[in-house]
Nucleic acid binder design. Structure first.
Lengths: 217, 217
DNA sequence: TTGACATTCAAACGAACGTTTGATACAAAC
DNA sequence: GTTTGTATCAAACGTTCGTTTGAATGTCAA
């Protein structure tokens, strides 16, 4: 088993370094040589453990991205269950908190959302996986939760667009950090992140009008 | 001048094909050979007209992206000026209409927002250009417009976050078209686009609560 | 101790990359 | 008619790419 442990370590290191590099710079900009150098192993290790570069990319989603998404969703469900009823206010706050603070380290969260954004913009095989195993089920749960509390006469598409829009904000403010910092002139520190959570909650609930924070909390 | 015209044609074709390919697949995934093949010219044309690949990429932003962004902004200002006062409702509607329907062809719009999203996620030299020449000035104008109409006690950062959030929605629903279609199950045709404009306006103004369309229009 | 198996490694493979070169074509200037 | 300058082209440059190979290493069961 000590042999298996070593194997696993190399495989795990490869997955970690590959994820970080793919997230930061994209599939094509990262070479196998760069990944194996970062993982401190031989060039051939990628092909030995994963067959080829493309499959390493897919495995990053299977072995790392999906479990992490599940952790975030679990965190969301836990914090929401602590509340009385799944009212939109509580749902929005729990969602924003889970995805912008939540159980992930800041680096994990950055990589997570960058990988997701890349797949949204240019879907590969990984997107099928991601949509079926993570997005659709979770969005379905949210729709079931929020549907009854939404204004009357709200069709399913409109509800889904509302949910997607909140995720667009979460994704955007994680994905475009550098740009957001430069435009707002604010450092992306934990204080700014707290203000961001507040903003996203207010915006999702009330749009431009919901900035006074009157009835919330 | 007929020689200059031919030169220009090649240069213009290169810019067009390069923009389309860079937008769809990103800088590193597109080769100079692929661009010159699409533009039906010799491989060396990129280096002759633009020096190198990187500079062709920058020139796509300077010669194509920025002028197009200006056209969209001009469209926004024109349709807004036709209204009485720049109330948030009119601003939101004019913005969404300019950026989701507006003066661009559907293909242009798609490429435009994909290039922008790529720069937001991983800024290069093009982003400096883009931020200084287009984003900051326009966001500044919007802030001046919307500032007085916003709820009392709204600081500058919060106002900018509101504006950025509306752009996040515009960008997202252009950038992640394939994914949005697959999640909502709706075709991205012009009818869906019209519903999208309506949704983004309502969401930006009222968040999850603004789906009844009561006071709007 | 031996044989089977899993893992790592240096080295090399052919293909594709961005870029350069020198020849060629052609219009305008002298 | 010759020169000058611009644009295009096929061909090649050296480099890097993803992948393959075969030997070396270490582990464990027989």
């Amino acid at each position: 088993m000590s042999q298996n442990e070593k194997n696993d370590l190399t495989k795990e290191r490869l997955l970690s370094e590959a994820e970080a590099l793919f997230a930061k710079r994209g599939y094509d900009a990262v070479s196998v040589r760069e990944i194996t150098a970062a993982a401190k192993c031989n060039l051939a290790a990628v092909n030995y453990h994963f067959g080829n570069k493309q499959n390493l990319y897919l495995e990053v989603f299977r072995a790392r991205w999906v479990p992490r998404a599940r952790r975030v969703q679990e965190h969301f469900r836990k914090t929401l269950a602590a509340q009385d009823a799944p009212l939109p206010t509580a749902v929005a706050r729990s969602l924003a908190e889970a995805f912008l603070v939540g159980p992930l380290s800041d680096e994990e969260r950055q990589h997570h959302h960058q990988l997701m954004a890349r797949e949204l913009g240019h879907p590969t095989d990984a997107f099928d996986f991601l949509a079926d195993k993570v997005m659709r089920p979770f969005f379905g749960q949210l729709a079931d939760m929020l549907g009854p509390t939404m204004p009357e006469g709200l069709d399913k598409e409109r509800l889904m667009l509302n949910i997607l829009s909140m995720f667009a904000l979460v994704l955007y403010f994680n994905f475009a950090r550098a740009a957001v910092s430069r435009i707002t002139g604010s450092e992306y520190d934990s204080a700014f992140k707290a203000r961001l959570v507040e903003h996203i909650v207010q915006f999702s609930l009330h749009g431009w009008g919901g900035v006074k924070g009157g009835t919330i909390d």
